[in-house]
Design a binder for these strands. Structure first.
Length: 446
RNA sequence: GCCCAUAUAGUGUAGUACGGUUAGCAUUAGGGACUGUCACUCCUUCGACCCGGGUUCAACUCCCGGUGUGGGCGCCA
């Protein structure tokens, strides 16, 4: 194993951070500040040493000139990558310093050290494989790239919330531990609930429908679990979804709200996180889309794929990976695919006037499906029939069905995968990069 | 779940094409020089052939199996 350096760690004592790196501006020149963070870079020029100290918001240069700082502080400044430090010092303007400003330390506390060899490259000299980075994620997340990705994620949620709250939506929370059998579709993770079998929820669908009959417009940001052994760069076993449901509305109302939400969020991200977008090279790619988004029907696109793009897709089939990729080449932006065959949609989706079709849609960005939704069935008799048609047992849905005796309004909604969208907005190659601690069939730690 | 590829210092790679060398480079890490760097620079030292079996005088190299990883497909309200 690697040997630890011998000096012992210090305590904070009475020290508290007075500022983040982003707060160090020219207004603070000659003021004393206390910063805390991690060593992003260290350069030793002999009588002159530089520490680049990073914190959650960015970085700032700590400059140690022999004769200017005390010998004790100068000696202590021999630090390694990602050491955890607190620095008490004076802010100085200096043209050659990054940002034109630097900190001249009076005192340094080394709160924690790192091994001589870190398990992943934090210098930016080489790019460590994603799998290895994920094994050491808490360290990996300190990189500027990851700081940018998750700053954008934060702004997506912030903008989405303020958009929805501003449109009379109420934030809800629905249970993730459920007792009933599957609604069909994806596999569930079974768990023990005391002495009974229970499951982790695959979506908030049924509960958000119920609550649309109470609060009319509801949304939730919450986890869903899918026990599929999918090996792709766009599937995870644990995902966070933005779920929305609105009463007295149908699919067309949802299409309109969703495209407005997408547009508003991208405006918010560009407004608040432009530097993060630039760092990821996305400032000219993640641009504000025009609305309304193009709307294509399932049937139109099947015809397009078969006629123009040389595929052989039977009417009624779901779109394969290959078909989606072809579509993405043809239509690179945001667009809707509406009126999917009823046969491949879940029981709660409203059939169209022609019952082979359904009042359902997917929101696509290029080849990737970001969201799906539609008008729901609100009539109990019709819903029971739909369950039976799908081979599901209405008795297993008794408590859900009861809701429909209480004056359930017509309603519609969507669910949108946050990580998939973040992947698109940040130009990432793999959905695991868009999640702090991704869960895949192989990965259960960290 | 299926098919294909791949595995070399902490990290990222070269190479063994045709089996035999001191396994090369960059960075990290240790030592040294350097008072305005910003991927500092320079000198120096340490550090590696995934695991198991087989073929062979000899395997990091060839073969088989395993495992990990990557890619594609499938699964996927």
């Amino acid at each position: 194993m690697v040997k630890q350096k011998t000096m012992s760690n210090e305590e904070m004592d009475g020290w508290r951070k007075t500022h983040y790196t982003k707060d160090i501006t020219k207004d603070l020149v000659d003021k004393e500040v206390i910063l805390g963070g991690w060593v992003r870079n260290y350069r030793d020029l002999g009588g002159l040493r530089f520490i680049t100290l990073q914190d959650v918001y960015g970085e700032r240069q700590i400059t140690l000139k022999k004769g200017i700082v005390s010998d004790e502080v100068f000696e202590k400044a021999k630090v390694g990558y990602q050491y955890c430090l607190m620095v008490k010092g004076t802010v100085k303007g200096f043209e050659k310093a990054p940002g034109g400003i630097e900190i001249i330390p009076k005192e340094i506390k080394i709160l924690n050290k790192t091994p001589e060899k870190l398990p992943i490259d934090v210098t930016g000299e080489t790019s460590t494989e994603l799998d290895l980075r994920l094994n050491n994620r808490a360290l990996d997340l300190r990189s500027v790239r990851n700081q940018a990705i998750f700053a954008i994620r934060g702004e997506i949620l912030n903008s989405a919330r303020s958009f929805l709250l501003g449109n009379d939506f109420k934030e809800i929370y629905t249970p993730k531990i459920i007792g009933s059998a599957t609604e069909g579709g994806t596999e569930l993770f079974p768990i023990m609930y005391f002495d009974r079998e229970a499951f982790l929820t695959q979506s908030a669908q049924l509960y958000k429908e119920q609550l649309s009959g109470v609060y009319e417009r509801v949304f939730e940001v919450g986890p869903s679990f899918r026990a599929e052994k999918s090996h792709t760069k766009r599937h995870l076993c644990e995902i966070v979804q933005l779920d929305m449901e609105m009463a007295f509305a149908d699919m067309n109302d949802v299409l309109k709200i969703l495209e407005e939400l997408v547009q508003n969020v991208i405006i918010g991200v560009r407004d608040k996180q432009m530097s993060a977008l630039k760092l990821l090279g996305m400032e000219n790619k993640t641009i504000v889309p025009e609305i309304p988004f193009p709307r294509y029907t399932y049937e139109e696109l099947i015809d397009l794929l078969n006629a123009k793009l040389n595929l052989k897709i039977e009417w009624g089939e779901d779109l394969s990976t290959k078909a989606n990729r072809k579509l993405g080449q043809e239509i690179p932006g945001y667009y809707y695919i509406t009126h999917w065959p009823m046969a491949i949609k879940p029981f709660y989706i409203m059939p169209s006037k022609n019952p082979r079709f359904s009042e359902s849609f997917d929101l696509q960005k290029g080849w990737l499906e970001l969201s799906s939704g539609g008008t729901r069935v609100h009539n109990k008799v019709q819903l029971v029939e739909a369950l039976e048609n799908k081979g599901l047992n209405p008795i297993a849905f008794e408590s859900h069905l009861r809701t429909f005796d209480f004056g359930m309004p017509p309603h519609a909604g969507f669910g949108l995968g946050i990580a998939r969208w973040l992947t698109v907005l940040c130009g990432l190659d793999d959905i695991r990069e868009a999640v702090m601690y991704p869960r895949t069939p192989e990965r259960l730690t960290p």
